[in-house]
């Protein structure tokens, strides 16, 4: 078994009993915090598919988080709380947005790709900011928690945690399968050597665009969860700073692996929460931590594990 897989199984095994541990410690609220970290782990995983495996640095990935959140928010505001409707709508909207913007963005390379994805992300952000029927810039409270065929999967913080964990595990398994399929190998191949892939008869564009769409769709699932977690939907989910934070999660965790982004997201959210409790000036130590982490570790958290082995 690969190191990445083993690390992931250990991670799941550690996460599983956490809520029980937290309530034994008399800190049940930490379960809520950890759930938020897991939601971002899903988002970071989706970004890693294009960033780590496909070498496409998207600086507008938060847009898909927002599309998912607004799909849940707008449908709930119109009385549709069923996930059986919300999820397909979120996936379809995210997929469509990804196909259209991806088809244009993928014409560019490198830094230009970063900037054009940023541009599309900002457009989505401003569009939602001007949607005054749904709160505009202020955002809106979620009219009702999402349900699943009448059941209430987000009813308690405990249930929410395990539903999120199960989704994370499922998406991890799905992406593991995708990256090891022929499709995944071609995608990784275009990252390593584009010309060679073209020479042996693959057109990278189609593969890249498909990966870009899958990635956006998975991120929208995290968006639906985030809307339910905060009970609130806001354009601030889609700002460029949030996209930057997601890149940080992936790179700090270890890009191009499926465990790295999960660890990175958990470490990122937990340290942000911890520092914010210590001081209102938490951005200073947080920024310093990011700088030092990148300068003195290579390959992210997972790389550090690997190095110690």
């Amino acid at each position: 078994m690969r190191l990445s897989d083993r690390a992931m199984l250990v991670t799941f095994a550690v996460l599983l009993p956490m809520p029980a541990l937290f309530s034994a410690m008399g800190e049940p609220f930490l379960t809520v915090v950890l759930t938020r970290a897991l939601i971002f782990a899903i988002a970071a995983l989706s970004l890693d598919l294009i960033l780590g495996f496909g070498a496409m640095v998207s600086f507008g990935h938060a847009a898909y988080l927002g599309i998912g959140a607004y799909a849940a928010g707008i449908l709930a505001a119109n009385g549709v709380t069923g996930l059986e409707v919300q999820l397909p709508v979120a996936l379809a909207a995210a997929g469509a947005f990804a196909l259209v913007t991806g088809a244009i963005s993928l014409r560019t390379r490198g830094v230009h790709f970063i900037m054009i994805t940023l541009a599309f992300g900002q457009m989505a952000y401003f569009l939602m900011s001007s949607l005054s029927a749904y709160g505009g810039d202020d955002g809106m409270a979620l009219a009702g928690r999402s349900t699943l065929f009448g059941a209430d999967p987000f009813g308690s913080s405990l249930r929410f945690f395990y539903v999120t964990l199960a989704l994370l595990a499922g998406i991890w398994a799905l992406l593991r399968a995708v990256t090891r399929s022929r499709f995944g190998r071609v995608l990784t191949g275009t990252r390593e050597n584009e010309t060679r892939m073209q020479a042996i008869g693959f057109s990278p564009f189609g593969y890249r665009l498909t990966a870009y769409a899958i990635s956006g769709m998975i991120a929208s699932v995290a968006g639906v969860l985030l809307a339910n977690h905060a009970a609130f939907v806001s354009p601030s989910y889609m700002g460029w700073a949030r996209s930057g934070e997601m890149i940080a999660m992936v790179v700090l965790g270890g890009m191009g692996t499926l465990t790295g982004p999960v660890l990175g997201a958990i470490a990122f959210i937990l340290s942000e929460e911890a520092l914010a409790r210590l001081t209102t000036h938490w951005r200073l130590p947080f920024g310093a931590a990011v700088v030092l982490a990148v300068l003195f570790t290579r390959g992210g958290l997972l790389g550090a594990l690997r190095g110690r082995r």
Partner: peptide
């Protein structure tokens, strides 16, 4: 800081300078 980034990937540069940006913004606030 910056001279340590010349042989690094664009992504590492983005992250380090993002961290610097957070630090400078908070620094002037302090």
């Amino acid at each position: 800081v910056i001279r340590r980034l010349y042989d690094r990937s664009h992504l590492d540069q983005v992250l380090v300078t993002f961290g610097l940006m957070l630090m400078l913004n908070e620094g002037v606030r302090i």
